[in-house]
């Protein structure tokens, strides 16, 4: 029986990990080119779930339309946060630290507005039952929604990879990431690209949020944990490496789930951070990142 449990945990880990990969990419999309530690990304994540809820359950839109609506609205919201808070702050001469502080503040405000609008009751989104009922394979089960999650995550990640490599916008984003000053000099419209990265990153996080909401329902507090996972995966993968972040996200999901095979499951989020601690201590550049400079060298 025990090895079956391990196999089931591995399956759960892959499902969780594919969402973690999306989270990691979504954060990195914003962080890598703009160097904005966008803590309010956690709020965008939560809000996109509630947008979906509002569209699907509140206004009765068909599910696929609601999902699309949630993703687009989240993207717009990300741009809005940047335009209303971060960009004016940058223009007034503030440094990285002020922008980070303001992102905490945005997080706090959005979290409370959410409580006022949707209250703190848990919410579920009605999904066709067939999607959620497990398909048994012996003692193992996988739900169609799990399969859909993994497939969507894979497709989206592949699309992002293609986008970054072959489109003009994608190339511009990578150019800014490598050398923002140079990008300006060669005539890349950095503000436009900045808005695009916020839109893209927020839309990506919304995809992860949508699948989580469909599967597990919504509570106002789920954002921070998601953000933590995204950040840890980005570090472990190596800042600046998109494949690295995605791979690390997947790996984190698997490690978390396999880890609780023997240790009690309430330590799950501690596993994530032990991984982070180990990397910060011994390999701060992550798997694929550029070398991290140290003061002592």
């Amino acid at each position: 029986m025990a090895h079956w449990l391990l196999l089931q945990l591995l399956i759960n880990g892959i499902v969780a990990g594919s969402l973690y990969a999306l989270l990691a990419i979504s954060f990195a999309t914003i962080y890598a080119p703009t160097k904005t530690f966008h803590f309010a990304h956690a709020s965008i994540y939560v809000y996109s779930g509630y947008f979906l809820y509002q569209f699907a359950m509140g206004w009765g839109w068909p599910l696929p339309v609601s999902i699309l609506g949630g993703v687009v609205t989240a993207g717009a919201m990300g741009v809005l946060v940047d335009r209303v808070v971060y960009t004016p702050l940058r223009r007034s001469g503030a440094g990285v630290m002020e922008v980070l502080l303001s992102s905490f503040a945005v997080f706090v405000v959005l979290q409370s507005v959410l409580l006022l609008v949707w209250k703190s009751d848990p919410r579920t989104i009605r999904v066709p039952e067939v999607l959620k009922n497990g398909i048994p394979f012996g003692v193992l089960t996988v739900t169609p929604l799990d399969l859909l999650t993994v497939a969507t995550a894979g497709a989206v990640l592949a699309a992002v990879a293609v986008f970054m490599r072959y489109t003009r916008l994608g190339k511009a984003i990578r150019a800014i990431e490598n050398d923002a000053g140079m990008a300006v000099m060669v005539g890349i419209p950095t503000e436009g690209v900045r808005m695009a990265t916020f839109f893209l990153g927020s839309a990506l996080v919304a995809v992860a949020a949508v699948f989580t909401a469909l599967d597990k329902g919504l509570e106002p507090t789920i954002g921070v944990q998601a953000l933590l996972v995204a950040v840890v995966a980005m570090i472990v993968g190596g800042v600046g490496s998109f494949p690295g972040a995605a791979l690390a996200g997947l790996l984190l999901g698997v490690v978390e789930n396999l880890g609780i095979w023997k240790i009690p499951s309430e330590w799950k989020s501690t596993i994530t951070f032990s991984v982070l601690a180990l990397f910060l201590l011994f390999r701060p550049s992550g798997f694929f990142g550029q070398r991290v400079a140290r003061y002592s060298e």
Binding site: L100, L228, W267, F273, L276, A277, L280, R294, Y295
Partner: peptide
């Protein structure tokens, strides 16, 4: 472990550390 690194690592380190310690208090 974190302040010897340049960049935002200490923010992330303190962030992770905050969560670990919270989990220790809790669990």
């Amino acid at each position: 472990s974190t302040l010897r690194l340049k960049g935002d690592y200490y923010i992330i380190g303190s962030f992770g550390f905050q969560v670990i310690l919270y989990n220790v208090f809790l669990n």
